[in-house]
């Protein structure tokens, strides 16, 4: 059995016939050919597969593509505005918020969710907000600094 789905990824519509068991993360990586979204633990614990579905964070390894039928999905490739990096991307770069980089797309989208719900989080709130994302290089200190920096930069830009 194949099911037709229409999923918009980073503003581009993909209409495909998929097996219902296809995970959203594989739709993104195979059909949309965007490999920034990673499969890490594959058990919804590590957060490497985090994307936004209609602006809200979700683990795409624990979401079927058919569940995202009709939705707007944003991946790490869709955050920048042309050549201009998103504030979070800029801050992760400036504050060395990554080492190997595997967890970074998920970290940035989980941080996006945190700042959507809390524009100026404390260090503690950042750590709680990112508890669903694991960095196996253990680079958490700089990740927290990066999120804080992005929040401050966004607040300054809004003034």
């Amino acid at each position: 059995m194949k099911v037709p789905v229409r999923i918009t990824v980073n503003g581009r519509l993909f209409e495909r016939e998929v097996e219902p068991r296809l995970l959203l993360v594989h739709f993104i990586r195979v059909f949309a050919e965007l490999t920034g979204t990673k499969v890490g633990c594959d058990t919804s614990q590590c957060g490497s597969c985090t994307v936004l579905i209609d602006g809200v964070s979700a683990k795409s390894c624990t979401t079927l593509a058919v569940q995202a039928d009709g939705a707007n999905v944003t991946t790490i490739e869709g955050l920048a505005d042309g050549e201009k990096l998103h504030a979070l991307q800029e801050s992760f770069w400036n504050k060395h918020g990554l080492q190997c980089g595997f967890c970074t797309p998920g970290m940035i989208l989980a941080s996006h969710e945190l700042l959507r719900t809390n524009a100026s989080p404390s260090d503690d709130e950042i750590r709680h907000g990112l508890e669903g994302n694991i960095c196996r290089c253990t680079g958490y200190q700089n990740i927290v600094r990066a999120v804080k920096d992005a929040a401050e930069a966004t607040a300054a830009a809004d003034k």
Binding site: S44, G47, T50, V56, S57, A58, K59, T62, T63, A110, E113, L114, T117, G129, E131, G132, N133
Partner: peptide
């Protein structure tokens, strides 16, 4: 429960 992304779904 879980983490923010899990709670969203």
């Amino acid at each position: 429960i879980g983490d923010p992304a899990v709670r969203n779904r």
